[in-house]
Write a protein that binds this DNA or RNA. Structure first.
Lengths: 164, 164
DNA sequence: TATTGTTATACTCTATAACTATA
DNA sequence: TATAGTTATAGAGTATAACAATA
C-alpha cells in the first residue's frame, strides 16, 4: 500500500518504534478484519470487471437470485441479502427500467408480486455470471481447488453459526 | 433469517419455483459474497460487544494500531487501514478528546506528527482488546484451532495476492 | 514540485417513520 | 392486527477538490 520507504530508522530516539513499517499482527488474528479486507478486494475487482455492464455487486446479487428463484418476492430478497425493504425498491426499479426483470401478480398474496427475469434479463445475467466466475477464478488463483473449497466452507460455518 | 414458513407449495402452478425457500447456491460459490457475510456477522457482534466502550470497529483498529506502533503517522494509518486522509481526521480528534491518544512532533518530518496512546488510552485499549479476543473466540467457536489458523491464512493469501 | 494534515463538500449506503393495500 | 411494498428522509460511510505548512 505504501510506495515509499525512507529507511534511516536509527535516529537515536529511544521511544521511537516501527515508524516506517506498521505492525498489524493483532488485527490479523481477527476474522472480522481479514474477512473485511478480503471482501473489499473482491468488491473492488467486481466493480472494475462489471463496470462495462453498469452493474454493482448488490445489483448482481439481486438479478442472480431472481434468475435462480423465479417468482421470488422483495421480502425474500431482503431476507436473503440483508437489505432493508426501502433500500431494495430503487434497485428493483432500475433493473425493471433496464428491461431485465418484471413483476407479476403473486398467486397467493395480493400484497406481494413475484419477480421474474425477462428474456433480455436472462441473457444479461448469463453474461454477468460468466464475468463473475472468471473474476472469482483470478481472485482465488493462489489457492488450490481444495483450499478454495475449504475457504468457502469455513467462512460459511462462521456466518451460519447461530447466536454469535 | 426468515421467521415464517407458510408451506403449501403445491398450488398447481407450473412456472412457480422455490418461492418459499431461496436458492443462493450460485452466490455461495463466490468468496466476495461469503467474505462479506462473514465480515457483517463479525461487525454486528463487534458493535454489540464494544458498545459499552463506545467504540466502533474502525476506532478500535486505529487505537490498536497506535498502541502497537507508537509514533505512527496518520498517513501510515490510512495506508494500513484503507482509510482516506480526510476521513481519518475526525476519528483521531475523537480519540484525542477522549484522552486516549496524543500527538507529538515527528522527529524527522515537520509536516507530520507521531501518534501515541496515553496512560489512560493504554489501559482502555487493553480492555478493548480483551473484549475483542473473547468475541473472536465465540465467532470461531465452531472451528477447530487448526481450522481457525487455516481460515485466517487462506483469507490473507487472497487479499494479499497482487493484481487481483 | 510533492506530501502531510486539514476543511469543506458531495455522493453513496444504510436506517427509521409512516403510509397503502392487502392478509 | 400484522405484513408487503412504497415514499420520504435522516444518518453514517466514503469520495474528491483545494488549501497551508513543510519536505
Amino acid at each position: 500500500m505504501s510506495t515509499e520507504d525512507t529507511g534511516a530508522t536509527l535516529e537515536g530516539e529511544l521511544a521511537l518504534t516501527a515508524v516506517e513499517t506498521v505492525d498489524t499482527t493483532f488485527l490479523e488474528t481477527l476474522i472480522g478484519y481479514n474477512a473485511r479486507r478480503t471482501a473489499l478486494v473482491a468488491i473492488e475487482s467486481f466493480l472494475r470487471v462489471l463496470e462495462p455492464l453498469r452493474l454493482k455487486p448488490v445489483e448482481f446479487s439481486v438479478l442472480s437470485l431472481i434468475e435462480h428463484n423465479p417468482g421470488i418476492t422483495q421480502r425474500q430478497l431482503c431476507a436473503a441479502l440483508n437489505i432493508l425493504p426501502p433500500n431494495l425498491v430503487g434497485l428493483i426499479q432500475r433493473q425493471e427500467r433496464r428491461g431485465f426483470i418484471e413483476k407479476r401478480p403473486h398467486p397467493r398474496d395480493g400484497r406481494a408480486s413475484g419477480l421474474y427475469t425477462t428474456d433480455e434479463g436472462r441473457s444479461f445475467v448469463a453474461r454477468a455470471e460468466e464475468l463473475v466466475a472468471a473474476l472469482e477464478a483470478r481472485l482465488v488463483a493462489r489457492l488450490s481447488p481444495s483450499e478454495q473449497r475449504t475457504l468457502l466452507q469455513l467462512l460459511q460455518r462462521v456466518y451460519r453459526s447461530p447466536s454469535v
